[in-house]
Design a protein around this nucleic acid. Structure first.
Lengths: 194, 194
DNA sequence: CTGGCCAAACCGACTGGCCGGTATGCTGGC
DNA sequence: GCCAGCATACCGGCCAGTCGGTTTGGCCAG
Protein backbone atom coordinates (compact mmCIF):
# COMPACT_ATOMS: atom_id res chain seq x y z
CA UNK A 1 0.00 0.00 0.00
CA UNK A 2 1.75 3.08 -1.23
CA UNK A 3 -1.57 4.79 -0.48
CA UNK A 4 -0.45 7.26 2.15
CA UNK A 5 3.24 7.16 2.83
CA UNK A 6 2.86 10.57 4.41
CA UNK A 7 1.96 9.03 7.75
CA UNK A 8 4.85 6.58 7.48
CA UNK A 9 7.36 9.19 6.39
CA UNK A 10 6.34 11.41 9.27
CA UNK A 11 6.55 8.56 11.77
CA UNK A 12 10.01 7.54 10.63
CA UNK A 13 11.33 11.09 10.67
CA UNK A 14 9.82 11.58 14.11
CA UNK A 15 11.42 8.44 15.52
CA UNK A 16 14.80 9.46 14.19
CA UNK A 17 14.59 13.01 15.51
CA UNK A 18 13.08 12.06 18.86
CA UNK A 19 15.86 9.52 19.35
CA UNK A 20 18.53 12.02 18.36
CA UNK A 21 17.36 15.15 20.15
CA UNK A 22 14.56 14.12 22.44
CA UNK A 23 10.85 14.75 22.13
CA UNK A 24 10.81 18.18 23.74
CA UNK A 25 13.72 19.47 21.69
CA UNK A 26 12.14 18.45 18.41
CA UNK A 27 9.63 20.82 16.87
CA UNK A 28 6.81 19.73 14.64
CA UNK A 29 8.33 21.96 11.98
CA UNK A 30 11.58 19.98 12.07
CA UNK A 31 9.71 16.70 11.73
CA UNK A 32 7.68 17.70 8.71
CA UNK A 33 10.72 19.20 7.02
CA UNK A 34 12.70 16.01 7.58
CA UNK A 35 9.79 13.99 6.24
CA UNK A 36 9.43 16.26 3.23
CA UNK A 37 5.82 17.16 3.94
CA UNK A 38 4.04 20.15 5.41
CA UNK A 39 2.43 20.80 8.75
CA UNK A 40 -1.00 20.70 7.16
CA UNK A 41 -0.36 17.22 5.80
CA UNK A 42 0.89 16.01 9.13
CA UNK A 43 -2.04 17.40 11.08
CA UNK A 44 -4.28 15.71 8.56
CA UNK A 45 -3.05 12.32 9.76
CA UNK A 46 -2.21 13.02 13.40
CA UNK A 47 -4.25 14.86 15.96
CA UNK A 48 -1.29 16.29 17.80
CA UNK A 49 2.40 15.92 18.47
CA UNK A 50 1.45 13.72 21.39
CA UNK A 51 -0.60 11.54 19.05
CA UNK A 52 2.47 11.09 16.90
CA UNK A 53 4.53 10.00 19.87
CA UNK A 54 1.87 7.57 20.96
CA UNK A 55 1.79 6.00 17.50
CA UNK A 56 5.41 5.01 18.05
CA UNK A 57 4.51 3.39 21.36
CA UNK A 58 1.49 1.64 19.91
CA UNK A 59 3.62 0.08 17.22
CA UNK A 60 6.26 -1.21 19.61
CA UNK A 61 3.78 -2.50 22.15
CA UNK A 62 1.76 -4.41 19.57
CA UNK A 63 4.84 -5.85 17.95
CA UNK A 64 6.46 -7.19 21.08
CA UNK A 65 3.24 -8.44 22.60
CA UNK A 66 2.30 -10.36 19.45
CA UNK A 67 5.77 -11.91 19.30
CA UNK A 68 5.53 -13.08 22.89
CA UNK A 69 2.01 -14.43 22.42
CA UNK A 70 3.08 -16.34 19.37
CA UNK A 71 6.14 -17.87 21.03
CA UNK A 72 4.15 -18.97 24.06
CA UNK A 73 1.38 -20.35 21.84
CA UNK A 74 3.89 -22.60 20.11
CA UNK A 75 4.41 -24.31 23.48
CA UNK A 76 7.21 -26.60 24.57
CA UNK A 77 9.42 -26.89 27.65
CA UNK A 78 9.50 -23.72 29.76
CA UNK A 79 13.22 -23.32 29.40
CA UNK A 80 13.02 -23.40 25.61
CA UNK A 81 10.06 -21.06 25.46
CA UNK A 82 11.70 -18.58 27.80
CA UNK A 83 14.97 -18.70 25.91
CA UNK A 84 13.24 -18.13 22.59
CA UNK A 85 11.22 -15.27 24.01
CA UNK A 86 14.30 -13.59 25.46
CA UNK A 87 16.39 -13.92 22.32
CA UNK A 88 13.50 -12.64 20.24
CA UNK A 89 12.83 -9.57 22.29
CA UNK A 90 16.50 -8.62 22.37
CA UNK A 91 16.78 -9.06 18.63
CA UNK A 92 13.63 -7.09 17.98
CA UNK A 93 14.81 -4.34 20.30
CA UNK A 94 18.05 -4.12 18.37
CA UNK A 95 16.20 -3.95 15.09
CA UNK A 96 14.10 -1.10 16.46
CA UNK A 97 16.83 0.57 18.43
CA UNK A 98 15.74 4.12 17.70
CA UNK A 99 12.17 3.29 18.67
CA UNK A 100 13.51 1.80 21.87
CA UNK A 101 15.41 4.94 22.70
CA UNK A 102 12.26 6.97 22.38
CA UNK A 103 10.21 4.32 24.13
CA UNK A 104 12.20 4.34 27.32
CA UNK A 105 13.13 7.98 27.39
CA UNK A 106 9.94 9.81 26.53
CA UNK A 107 7.15 7.96 28.27
CA UNK A 108 6.67 10.81 30.69
CA UNK A 109 6.11 13.22 27.83
CA UNK A 110 2.85 11.52 26.90
CA UNK A 111 -0.38 12.98 28.18
CA UNK A 112 -1.69 11.24 31.28
CA UNK A 113 -4.33 8.93 29.75
CA UNK A 114 -1.94 7.66 27.12
CA UNK A 115 0.78 7.22 29.66
CA UNK A 116 -1.62 5.03 31.61
CA UNK A 117 -2.39 3.06 28.48
CA UNK A 118 1.32 2.41 27.93
CA UNK A 119 1.72 1.36 31.57
CA UNK A 120 -1.23 -1.00 31.22
CA UNK A 121 0.11 -2.63 28.06
CA UNK A 122 3.58 -2.98 29.48
CA UNK A 123 2.16 -4.62 32.56
CA UNK A 124 0.38 -7.15 30.36
CA UNK A 125 3.68 -8.05 28.78
CA UNK A 126 5.39 -8.12 32.16
CA UNK A 127 2.77 -10.43 33.65
CA UNK A 128 2.93 -12.85 30.77
CA UNK A 129 6.69 -12.98 31.13
CA UNK A 130 6.34 -13.41 34.88
CA UNK A 131 4.13 -16.45 34.42
CA UNK A 132 6.88 -18.10 32.39
CA UNK A 133 9.37 -17.55 35.19
CA UNK A 134 6.83 -18.78 37.69
CA UNK A 135 6.31 -22.00 35.75
CA UNK A 136 10.06 -22.47 35.62
CA UNK A 137 10.30 -21.96 39.36
CA UNK A 138 7.48 -24.45 39.95
CA UNK A 139 9.47 -26.99 37.99
CA UNK A 140 12.49 -26.24 40.12
CA UNK A 141 14.47 -24.83 37.21
CA UNK A 142 14.94 -21.32 38.51
CA UNK A 143 15.95 -20.03 41.89
CA UNK A 144 13.20 -18.91 44.20
CA UNK A 145 15.38 -17.33 46.88
CA UNK A 146 15.17 -14.00 45.07
CA UNK A 147 11.90 -12.10 44.58
CA UNK A 148 10.48 -12.75 41.14
CA UNK A 149 10.31 -8.99 40.56
CA UNK A 150 14.10 -8.84 40.87
CA UNK A 151 14.60 -11.73 38.46
CA UNK A 152 12.38 -10.11 35.88
CA UNK A 153 13.86 -6.66 36.32
CA UNK A 154 17.24 -8.24 35.75
CA UNK A 155 16.20 -9.17 32.23
CA UNK A 156 14.06 -6.20 31.30
CA UNK A 157 16.91 -3.94 32.30
CA UNK A 158 19.01 -5.42 29.52
CA UNK A 159 16.39 -4.60 26.92
CA UNK A 160 16.09 -1.14 28.31
CA UNK A 161 19.80 -0.51 28.31
CA UNK A 162 20.50 -1.74 24.77
CA UNK A 163 20.11 1.65 23.15
CA UNK A 164 22.71 3.03 25.53
CA UNK A 165 25.59 0.89 24.40
CA UNK A 166 24.76 -1.26 21.38
CA UNK A 167 26.13 0.17 18.17
CA UNK A 168 24.50 -1.23 15.01
CA UNK A 169 27.57 -0.12 13.09
CA UNK A 170 29.83 -1.86 15.58
CA UNK A 171 31.33 -5.34 15.38
CA UNK A 172 28.76 -7.17 17.49
CA UNK A 173 26.21 -9.25 15.62
CA UNK A 174 22.68 -8.76 16.86
CA UNK A 175 21.70 -12.41 17.01
CA UNK A 176 24.91 -13.30 18.80
CA UNK A 177 24.46 -10.50 21.32
CA UNK A 178 20.87 -11.57 21.86
CA UNK A 179 22.01 -15.09 22.67
CA UNK A 180 24.79 -13.86 24.93
CA UNK A 181 22.51 -11.61 26.93
CA UNK A 182 19.93 -14.35 27.23
CA UNK A 183 22.59 -16.75 28.35
CA UNK A 184 23.87 -14.43 31.06
CA UNK A 185 20.33 -13.95 32.29
CA UNK A 186 19.35 -17.61 32.31
CA UNK A 187 22.60 -18.63 33.95
CA UNK A 188 22.02 -16.05 36.65
CA UNK A 189 18.54 -17.22 37.52
CA UNK A 190 19.17 -20.97 37.25
CA UNK A 191 18.82 -22.92 40.43
CA UNK A 192 22.19 -24.26 41.50
CA UNK A 193 21.74 -25.33 45.10
CA UNK A 194 21.63 -28.84 46.39
CA UNK B 1 27.08 25.49 57.00
CA UNK B 2 23.56 26.79 56.97
CA UNK B 3 25.08 29.64 54.97
CA UNK B 4 23.17 29.36 51.72
CA UNK B 5 20.57 26.66 51.71
CA UNK B 6 18.98 28.40 48.75
CA UNK B 7 21.15 26.49 46.32
CA UNK B 8 20.40 23.24 48.12
CA UNK B 9 16.68 23.87 48.38
CA UNK B 10 16.52 24.67 44.69
CA UNK B 11 18.51 21.58 43.75
CA UNK B 12 16.32 19.28 45.81
CA UNK B 13 13.11 20.76 44.45
CA UNK B 14 14.50 20.50 40.95
CA UNK B 15 15.42 16.84 41.34
CA UNK B 16 11.99 16.01 42.65
CA UNK B 17 10.16 17.87 39.91
CA UNK B 18 12.43 16.71 37.11
CA UNK B 19 11.94 13.13 38.26
CA UNK B 20 8.18 13.55 38.47
CA UNK B 21 7.42 15.52 35.34
CA UNK B 22 10.59 15.56 33.30
CA UNK B 23 13.00 18.40 32.65
CA UNK B 24 11.17 19.94 29.73
CA UNK B 25 7.81 19.88 31.47
CA UNK B 26 9.13 21.67 34.52
CA UNK B 27 9.31 25.44 34.45
CA UNK B 28 11.82 27.43 36.43
CA UNK B 29 8.87 29.13 38.06
CA UNK B 30 7.61 25.80 39.41
CA UNK B 31 11.01 24.95 40.81
CA UNK B 32 11.50 28.20 42.68
CA UNK B 33 7.97 28.06 44.05
CA UNK B 34 8.51 24.51 45.28
CA UNK B 35 11.80 25.55 46.82
CA UNK B 36 10.22 28.60 48.45
CA UNK B 37 12.55 31.08 46.80
CA UNK B 38 12.30 33.49 43.91
CA UNK B 39 13.60 33.44 40.40
CA UNK B 40 16.05 36.19 41.23
CA UNK B 41 17.56 34.14 44.04
CA UNK B 42 17.86 31.07 41.84
CA UNK B 43 19.55 32.91 39.02
CA UNK B 44 21.95 34.31 41.57
CA UNK B 45 23.27 30.79 42.21
CA UNK B 46 22.75 29.12 38.84
CA UNK B 47 23.55 30.46 35.43
CA UNK B 48 20.67 28.75 33.70
CA UNK B 49 18.17 25.95 33.92
CA UNK B 50 20.73 23.82 32.15
CA UNK B 51 23.30 24.71 34.81
CA UNK B 52 20.89 23.49 37.44
CA UNK B 53 20.46 20.17 35.66
CA UNK B 54 24.19 19.76 35.31
CA UNK B 55 24.65 20.33 39.03
CA UNK B 56 22.57 17.20 39.62
CA UNK B 57 24.78 15.22 37.26
CA UNK B 58 27.95 16.60 38.78
CA UNK B 59 26.88 15.47 42.21
CA UNK B 60 26.03 11.92 41.13
CA UNK B 61 29.14 11.50 39.03
CA UNK B 62 31.45 12.66 41.81
CA UNK B 63 29.73 10.54 44.39
CA UNK B 64 29.82 7.28 42.49
CA UNK B 65 33.33 7.78 41.18
CA UNK B 66 34.69 8.52 44.63
CA UNK B 67 32.98 5.44 46.03
CA UNK B 68 34.49 3.23 43.36
CA UNK B 69 37.94 4.73 43.78
CA UNK B 70 37.81 4.17 47.50
CA UNK B 71 36.68 0.56 47.23
CA UNK B 72 39.39 -0.27 44.71
CA UNK B 73 42.00 1.53 46.80
CA UNK B 74 41.19 -0.71 49.75
CA UNK B 75 42.40 -3.62 47.64
CA UNK B 76 41.84 -7.34 48.14
CA UNK B 77 40.81 -10.27 45.92
CA UNK B 78 39.15 -9.20 42.68
CA UNK B 79 35.96 -11.10 43.46
CA UNK B 80 35.54 -9.31 46.80
CA UNK B 81 36.36 -5.90 45.39
CA UNK B 82 33.94 -6.35 42.51
CA UNK B 83 31.19 -7.61 44.77
CA UNK B 84 31.63 -4.70 47.16
CA UNK B 85 31.66 -2.22 44.28
CA UNK B 86 28.48 -3.67 42.79
CA UNK B 87 26.56 -3.77 46.04
CA UNK B 88 27.65 -0.24 46.82
CA UNK B 89 26.61 1.26 43.52
CA UNK B 90 23.22 -0.42 43.66
CA UNK B 91 22.64 0.78 47.20
CA UNK B 92 23.75 4.29 46.37
CA UNK B 93 21.53 4.31 43.32
CA UNK B 94 18.57 3.32 45.46
CA UNK B 95 19.36 6.04 47.96
CA UNK B 96 19.44 8.56 45.14
CA UNK B 97 16.62 7.10 43.12
CA UNK B 98 15.12 10.41 42.04
CA UNK B 99 18.53 11.64 40.94
CA UNK B 100 18.94 8.43 38.98
CA UNK B 101 15.65 8.93 37.21
CA UNK B 102 16.77 12.35 36.07
CA UNK B 103 20.27 11.12 35.35
CA UNK B 104 19.24 8.50 32.84
CA UNK B 105 16.28 10.28 31.34
CA UNK B 106 17.48 13.81 30.78
CA UNK B 107 21.04 13.53 29.59
CA UNK B 108 20.06 14.61 26.09
CA UNK B 109 18.55 17.79 27.48
CA UNK B 110 21.96 19.10 28.50
CA UNK B 111 23.76 21.48 26.17
CA UNK B 112 26.33 19.75 24.00
CA UNK B 113 29.54 20.56 25.91
CA UNK B 114 28.06 19.44 29.20
CA UNK B 115 26.65 16.33 27.62
CA UNK B 116 30.18 15.52 26.47
CA UNK B 117 31.48 16.12 29.97
CA UNK B 118 28.95 13.64 31.35
CA UNK B 119 29.89 11.10 28.70
CA UNK B 120 33.57 11.55 29.56
CA UNK B 121 33.02 11.07 33.27
CA UNK B 122 30.80 8.07 32.77
CA UNK B 123 33.44 6.51 30.55
CA UNK B 124 36.00 6.95 33.31
CA UNK B 125 33.75 5.02 35.64
CA UNK B 126 33.05 2.42 32.98
CA UNK B 127 36.73 1.88 32.25
CA UNK B 128 37.64 1.48 35.90
CA UNK B 129 34.87 -1.09 36.26
CA UNK B 130 36.03 -2.82 33.08
CA UNK B 131 39.55 -3.22 34.48
CA UNK B 132 38.12 -5.11 37.44
CA UNK B 133 36.33 -7.52 35.15
CA UNK B 134 39.46 -7.86 33.07
CA UNK B 135 41.53 -8.78 36.11
CA UNK B 136 38.90 -11.33 37.05
CA UNK B 137 39.03 -12.81 33.57
CA UNK B 138 42.82 -12.95 33.68
CA UNK B 139 42.55 -14.96 36.89
CA UNK B 140 40.09 -17.28 35.18
CA UNK B 141 37.22 -16.30 37.45
CA UNK B 142 34.92 -14.87 34.81
CA UNK B 143 33.88 -16.17 31.44
CA UNK B 144 35.68 -14.76 28.44
CA UNK B 145 33.46 -16.24 25.73
CA UNK B 146 31.28 -13.15 25.81
CA UNK B 147 32.55 -9.67 24.87
CA UNK B 148 33.49 -7.70 27.96
CA UNK B 149 31.19 -4.90 26.78
CA UNK B 150 28.24 -7.25 27.07
CA UNK B 151 29.23 -8.40 30.55
CA UNK B 152 29.51 -4.82 31.75
CA UNK B 153 26.32 -3.69 30.07
CA UNK B 154 24.61 -6.57 31.82
CA UNK B 155 25.40 -4.99 35.16
CA UNK B 156 25.06 -1.30 34.32
CA UNK B 157 21.64 -2.02 32.91
CA UNK B 158 20.45 -3.06 36.37
CA UNK B 159 21.55 0.24 37.86
CA UNK B 160 19.88 2.06 35.06
CA UNK B 161 16.63 0.21 35.41
CA UNK B 162 16.27 0.54 39.18
CA UNK B 163 14.23 3.70 39.05
CA UNK B 164 11.76 1.94 36.76
CA UNK B 165 10.67 -0.72 39.19
CA UNK B 166 12.14 -0.29 42.65
CA UNK B 167 9.67 1.22 45.10
CA UNK B 168 11.29 2.74 48.21
CA UNK B 169 7.93 2.41 49.94
CA UNK B 170 7.67 -1.22 48.90
CA UNK B 171 8.64 -4.33 50.84
CA UNK B 172 12.10 -4.88 49.37
CA UNK B 173 15.03 -3.82 51.53
CA UNK B 174 17.63 -1.90 49.63
CA UNK B 175 20.67 -3.74 50.94
CA UNK B 176 19.03 -7.07 50.28
CA UNK B 177 18.07 -6.08 46.75
CA UNK B 178 21.59 -4.81 46.15
CA UNK B 179 23.00 -8.18 47.19
CA UNK B 180 20.48 -10.07 45.09
CA UNK B 181 21.18 -8.09 41.97
CA UNK B 182 24.90 -8.40 42.50
CA UNK B 183 24.51 -12.11 43.01
CA UNK B 184 22.55 -12.59 39.81
CA UNK B 185 25.18 -10.65 37.92
CA UNK B 186 28.19 -12.42 39.38
CA UNK B 187 26.59 -15.81 38.92
CA UNK B 188 25.88 -14.97 35.29
CA UNK B 189 29.45 -13.98 34.46
CA UNK B 190 31.20 -16.70 36.48
CA UNK B 191 33.20 -19.18 34.47
CA UNK B 192 31.62 -22.59 34.67
CA UNK B 193 33.16 -24.58 31.86
CA UNK B 194 35.49 -27.51 32.29
C1' DC C 1 26.95 52.56 70.50
C1' DT C 2 25.67 54.34 65.95
C1' DG C 3 25.17 55.98 61.70
C1' DG C 4 26.85 55.64 57.14
C1' DC C 5 28.38 52.67 53.42
C1' DC C 6 29.03 49.01 50.33
C1' DA C 7 28.50 44.65 48.40
C1' DA C 8 26.17 40.53 48.13
C1' DA C 9 21.86 38.53 48.22
C1' DC C 10 17.51 38.74 46.63
C1' DC C 11 12.99 40.40 44.34
C1' DG C 12 9.49 40.12 40.58
C1' DA C 13 7.55 42.47 36.61
C1' DC C 14 8.61 42.27 31.99
C1' DT C 15 10.03 40.63 27.16
C1' DG C 16 11.24 38.38 23.11
C1' DG C 17 11.32 34.19 20.88
C1' DC C 18 9.68 29.84 19.94
C1' DC C 19 6.34 26.45 18.88
C1' DG C 20 1.98 23.70 18.89
C1' DG C 21 -2.01 24.17 16.89
C1' DT C 22 -5.56 26.33 13.61
C1' DA C 23 -8.04 28.79 9.94
C1' DT C 24 -8.56 29.39 5.49
C1' DG C 25 -7.83 28.51 0.99
C1' DC C 26 -6.38 25.72 -3.11
C1' DT C 27 -6.40 21.66 -6.34
C1' DG C 28 -7.11 17.59 -8.71
C1' DG C 29 -9.77 13.44 -9.17
C1' DC C 30 -14.32 11.31 -9.53
C1' DG D 1 -19.26 20.46 -7.79
C1' DC D 2 -17.61 18.34 -4.00
C1' DC D 3 -14.54 16.26 -1.00
C1' DA D 4 -10.15 14.24 0.55
C1' DG D 5 -5.78 15.77 0.69
C1' DC D 6 -3.00 18.89 1.21
C1' DA D 7 -0.52 24.09 1.59
C1' DT D 8 0.61 28.30 4.29
C1' DA D 9 0.17 32.20 6.98
C1' DC D 10 -0.94 33.26 11.35
C1' DC D 11 -2.14 33.30 16.42
C1' DG D 12 -1.81 32.93 21.28
C1' DG D 13 0.35 30.93 25.19
C1' DC D 14 4.21 29.79 27.62
C1' DC D 15 8.61 30.33 29.54
C1' DA D 16 13.81 31.13 30.11
C1' DG D 17 16.23 34.69 31.11
C1' DT D 18 16.87 39.86 32.26
C1' DC D 19 17.23 43.99 34.67
C1' DG D 20 16.38 47.87 37.61
C1' DG D 21 15.56 48.10 42.00
C1' DT D 22 15.36 46.80 47.25
C1' DT D 23 16.81 44.49 51.35
C1' DT D 24 20.22 42.52 54.46
C1' DG D 25 24.38 42.09 56.95
C1' DG D 26 29.01 43.03 57.90
C1' DC D 27 32.29 46.60 58.97
C1' DC D 28 34.58 50.64 60.27
C1' DA D 29 35.01 55.55 61.51
C1' DG D 30 33.59 58.79 64.66
Amino acid sequence: MKATNVADDVTHAAVRLFAEQGYANTSVQQIVEAAGVTKGAMYHYFESKDDLLFAIYERMLSLQKSHLDEIIARGGPVEDVLRTACVDVVETSIEFLAEGTVFFRSQHMLTEPRQQEVVRRRREYHDEFARLIQRGQAEGLYRADVPRAVLIANFFSDIHYLSHWYDPAGPEDKTLVAEQITDLFLTGIRRTDA
